[in-house]
Amino acid sequence: TETAWISLVTALHLVLGLNAVLGLLLLRWQF
């Protein structure tokens, strides 16, 4: 079960990281 939790947490971190990068790019394009 630990491996499943680790994979789930890493997936969440990757998604949050991608969202942060996309958000910064969108803000930079708007201004």
Rank of each mutant, 00 (worst) to 15 (best):
W29F: 15
T3G: 11
G23L: 15
L16K: 07
V9T: 09
N19H: 09
G17L: 13
L27M: 10
W29Q: 15
E2D: 11
L8H: 04
L22A: 03
A11T: 08
L27N: 05
V9N: 03
W5I: 12
V15D: 01
I6V: 11
G17I: 14
R28K: 15
L27K: 01
A20T: 07
L16S: 04
S7K: 06
Q30G: 12
L25A: 12
N19T: 11
L25Y: 09
T10S: 07
I6G: 00
L22Y: 05
G23S: 13
G23N: 06
S7Q: 06
R28W: 08
I6H: 01
L16M: 12
T3P: 14
L24A: 13
S7T: 14
L25F: 09
V9P: 00
L27S: 01
L16V: 14
G17H: 10
A20P: 04
L14F: 11
L8Q: 06
N19F: 01
G23W: 13
H13Q: 11
L25W: 13
A4G: 09
N19R: 01
L14P: 04
E2R: 01
F31L: 12
G23V: 15
I6N: 05
T1A: 14
W5M: 10
A20V: 14
A11F: 10
R28D: 01
V15G: 13
N19G: 09
H13K: 11
L14C: 08
T3V: 12
W29G: 12
T3D: 03
L22M: 13
W29V: 14
G17Q: 09
W29K: 15
V15T: 13
W29S: 15
H13E: 11
L8G: 07
W29N: 15
A20R: 04
Q30I: 14
L16G: 03
G17D: 09
Q30N: 12
V15W: 05
E2I: 02
L14V: 13
W5F: 12
R28N: 08
V21T: 05
L27E: 03
R28V: 11
V15Q: 02
N19D: 05
L24R: 05
T10Y: 00
Q30T: 13
A11I: 10
T3N: 06
L27W: 10
A4P: 00
V9Y: 10
L12F: 13
W5V: 09
G17R: 03
W5S: 05
T3I: 11
V21I: 13
L18Y: 04
W29M: 15
L12H: 01
E2Q: 03
Q30K: 14
L26V: 13
V21M: 12
T10R: 09
A4D: 07
V15I: 07
R28H: 02
L24T: 02
L14H: 00
E2Y: 01
V9M: 13
V9Q: 08
W5E: 01
A11W: 07
I6A: 01
A11R: 02
L12V: 06
T3F: 03
G23E: 05
L22Q: 05
H13C: 15
H13A: 15
V15R: 05
V21Y: 09
L8W: 07
L25S: 06
T1N: 13
L26H: 03
